[in-house]
Design a protein around this nucleic acid. Structure first.
Lengths: 195, 195
DNA sequence: CCTTGGAGTATACGCTCGTTTACTAGCCGC
DNA sequence: GCGGCTAGTAAACGAGCGTATACTCCAAGG
């Protein structure tokens, strides 16, 4: 079986043979996985895609993260929450959410937390990861910024609008938002957030 | 290879051997597929599941519908549009949409058109089917019911809210809508639909 | 009664997936 | 200089998928 053509042809590959660094490889896998999961969702990304993107071997995914689901979980944990948008003047919250929602109408790249949550997954383990992440990273922080008894319900509805816009972009294709879009979204978020 | 235990044991299966009826079998497959696709989405439903649910043979799916995608396309065509909700007093449109959206917060069953569209699919053919269906069955009829230059944009945003609510239900689980929910959704749809 | 066409079936093909295993090869302490 | 730990690799495994093929069997037409 050792019929390897030439053990170490440096002919084509002028790459400076990467130093063997466990942690660096782990990070490359993590970065590649984050980008791919955000772009295509858990189920449509294969470990082979991740390994290829990270220029690492397939087996390392399982070795370093236990499984594809383990890797996904670690990716999720590294994602930022929506707090960056929530923090600030409460009066302008609806406007900021609308700006962000409008941005999500056409900006496909950038791997933010909601992206991966737009996808469903048949795997129960992933479903739970998604649900927990959606709660702790989006709904709960948003609810905490609101007053009134049904703060959570209002946060959920606002989040639904986010999710739906992302879904729309993916189904119909990206759409550059107009000022009217932002205005409309602002009005909707205001209607949603007011007690 | 012909080691079949007993060719035709009627022992357990007291079923009255179904008459061989091509059209009836086709319909059973269609009904089963409609229910399963609506419940789990295109990708999570296998032709084996459909055949099993319809108590038919796997091969018949391909024979009668060409492929899984062909069957899905036929299922989509049989689904109603949103026109039933749109038709009626224009002033009450937002309210009716809100009622429907609220209903979708907790009503998991009933195989309506949007259900299958809540899922994404990697298959480009299915993506196109989804997109076209979303346009012709939901967005376009809704846009037609609106006035103003950006009727389509408003219809898209309203549809996004629908999609997001469905997504939410599937991620967080069904949630019985309160009167406050309906009120909030009505306000949001009004903010969305007004020119 | 026999033939025959088509409904229904069993099974296999080719593929891709996540995962595992047995291996190779580079660096570090002695 | 040289074992030995370990990062990295190649290949295979078993399962599940959509699809295709070759078959069985029933029932109607002569």
């Amino acid at each position: 079986m050792n019929i390897e053509a030439i053990p170490s042809t440096e002919a084509q590959v002028a790459e400076a043979a990467r130093p063997r660094d466990r942690e660096a490889t782990r990070q490359r896998l993590l970065v590649a996985a984050r980008a791919l999961f955000a772009e295509h969702g858990y189920e449509h990304v294969t470990v082979r895609m991740i390994a290829s993107e990270a220029e690492a071997n397939i087996a390392l995914v399982c070795r370093y993260f236990g499984s594809k689901a383990g890797l996904f979980g670690e990716v999720l944990q590294g994602e930022p929450t929506i707090r960056r948008i929530i923090d600030g003047d409460p009066a302008g919250l609806a406007g900021r959410l609308a700006e962000y929602a409008a941005w999500r109408m056409h900006h496909d790249p950038e791997s933010r937390i909601l992206r991966s949550l737009e996808y469903s997954s048949g795997d129960p383990e992933i479903k739970i990861l998604m649900r927990d992440r959606l709660r702790t990273a989006v709904i709960d922080p948003l609810a905490a910024a609101l007053d009134g008894p049904d703060a959570h319900a209002r946060a959920r509805t606002a989040t639904a609008l986010f999710l739906g816009i992302g879904r729309m972009r993916r189904t119909l294709g990206p759409e550059a938002p107009t000022p009217a879009d932002v205005e409309r979204l602002t009005a909707m978020f205001e209607a949603c957030l007011r007690a």
